[in-house]
Structure formats: structure tokens, C-alpha cells
């Protein structure tokens, strides 16, 4: 929640995530917060972003909230239905996807991420969803943006499980591994925007009401501060907030 209650952390996350989607991107998007960010971008600054779902849906323009990518509401307005081999294979593996917009349980300093399992305080492993198409998207897309809520335990030098490779794995670059694309270029949370390049991760901006030092303290991976200091993420506009509240997520499933 912003300091004066004008928007929630989830709304801020959706807005900041949406700004990572460029007009003209061909983007495969994941379940939940990535859906919010991608659809917000599509309805605001990136009307020519082409969204794809691994279930085999091309360019949907849904008009009501959905429970995920397997919810037929999310497929409304699609231009074509096809197969996973077409979306993850022809489009992503075939080099036709410029952006993967995905969620994560855990991220490392090079933007590799985990969607498989986490280790609980008692040492037991708790399983979540697995890769699905996440590994295929991150292995093959031009660039990757991760959107997730900000908790210190989600940032780790070593992942519990490396589901999807980022810019490098260990000391091996994507090119060494045999992977195309640049890998993860941003991690957007409900507190900040972290950008990544081949030198590492940078605390690019913190959201309004956040102090960079407080965010750094809750982000236990090496983070550079840009020349001129960490900026403030642009605040959500009235138009963005209205779209989220009235159309995208009126029940607050993802952004409350």
C-alpha cells in the first residue's frame, strides 16, 4: 500500500511490470501477476504487444478477470488457437518471442529463477507448480522480466531449484550454455525495479514511498546503485488504476 493509501502494492507491481512490456513485443506470459502486467500494458502504452499463452492461445484480449491461463475467460478475443508446440516450439524455440513475462518463487543474482520448490524453515521442501513452459520461455525468448512480490527470502545466491536459466548459470554465460537471448533483464516487485545486465543487478528504482536503503536491506543479493542514484518508479496514473480496478482485477484476486 502506498503511504497515503492511493494504491496497493499489487497495483503498483502491475503498473511497474507493465512498463517493461514494449509496444511490438511478442510476449509469452505466465499465470497471475504477469497476466496483470501484460494486459495492463496491452490496454495502455503497448496496444501492439502480441501476447501468447503456452496453452496454445495467440493474442488474446480478455475483458473480464480470469483464474489463470487455463481459464477460458483469459482466451477471449484471441486471434488463433493452436498448440503448445506452436507457442513454446514454433514461437519461443523458433526465436519469434521477444519477451517472457513470468512469476517466480526465488531469483538469483543473474536472474535465474525457481518456480519448482522452496525450502521451509524446518528444511523440508515445499513443491509448487514446476516449470510448465517457464523453462522453455526463459531458455529461448529474447529477454525475460520477472514479476513477483518482494520478500527477502525470494532473493538467494543459490536457488533451491534452478527451474529457468537467467543471464548466466554458475560461471557459464547463456552463449556457453547454448542459449540465445539476453536472459533476465528486470525483476519487478511491489517495492522496486531491479535491472540486470552482464555486469550484474542494479536497484534501478524504488516505488513511491520506499527508501532505497530499506529495499536494499530486504534484497540479499549483490545490487549496484546506478550513477546518479536509485530513481523513483513513476507512480500509477489514474487511468492505470481505473483499468486495474474496473476491468482487470475487480475482485482484487491478484492486486489487492
Amino acid at each position: 500500500m502506498s503511504a497515503d493509501g492511493r494504491w496497493t502494492g499489487g497495483e503498483m507491481l502491475a503498473v511497474a511490470g507493465s512498463l517493461q512490456v514494449h509496444d511490438g513485443d511478442v510476449a509469452v506470459i505466465g499465470l497471475g501477476l504477469p497476466q496483470m502486467a501484460a494486459l495492463l500494458a496491452q490496454r495502455t502504452h503497448a496496444p501492439d504487444a502480441r501476447l501468447l499463452l503456452e496453452i496454445g492461445v495467440f493474442e488474446p484480449m480478455p475483458t473480464e478477470p480470469s483464474a489463470g491461463i487455463a481459464d477460458p475467460r483469459m482466451w477471449r478475443g484471441a486471434t488463433a488457437f493452436g498448440t503448445t508446440l506452436e507457442v513454446l516450439g514454433v514461437m519461443a524455440h523458433g526465436g519469434r518471442v521477444s519477451l517472457g513475462l513470468l512469476g517466480a518463487l526465488q531469483v538469483d543474482p543473474w536472474g535465474s529463477f525457481n518456480t519448482t520448490e522452496v525450502e521451509e524453515a524446518d528444511g523440508r521442501r515445499r513443491r509448487f507448480r514446476g516449470s510448465g513452459g517457464g523453462n522453455d520461455i526463459s531458455s529461448n525468448a529474447g529477454r525475460i522480466v520477472i514479476v513477483m512480490t518482494h520478500q527477502a527470502r525470494k532473493f538467494a545466491e543459490t536457488l533451491t531449484f534452478l527451474t529457468s536459466p537467467g543471464r548466466q548459470v554458475g560461471d557459464r554465460s547463456r552463449a556457453d550454455l547454448g542459449l540465445p537471448g539476453e536472459g533476465t533483464c528486470a525483476v519487478v516487485t511491489d517495492r522496486c525495479v531491479i535491472t540486470l545486465d552482464d555486469h550484474g543487478a542494479t536497484l534501478e528504482s524504488v516505488h513511491p514511498g520506499e527508501h532505497p536503503d530499506a529495499v536494499l536491506a530486504d534484497t540479499p543479493i549483490p545490487l549496484a546503485v546506478p550513477d546518479g542514484g536509485t530513481k523513483e518508479t513513476p507512480a500509477p496514473t489514474a487511468r492505470q488504476l481505473a483499468f486495474i480496478r474496473n476491468e482487470l482485477d475487480p475482485n482484487g484476486w491478484y492486486t489487492s
Binding site: 529461448n140 527451474t163 536459466p165
Partner: peptide
């Protein structure tokens, strides 16, 4: 999906770059 595709076509194997570098 590619393994199923290979099974469908009776291919001896299929190839991909997905999963390289991952814990999968």
C-alpha cells in the same frame, strides 16, 4: 511435448535447447 511428438512419429529421438543449464 517433444517427447510425445517423437513417439507419435516413431522418431529415434528429438532435440531441443530447453532445459540446458537448469536443475531439470
Amino acid at each position: 511435448a517433444l517427447r510425445l511428438h517423437a513417439g507419435a512419429l516413431g522418431l529415434p529421438f528429438v532435440t531441443t535447447r530447453s532445459m540446458l543449464g537448469s536443475d531439470l
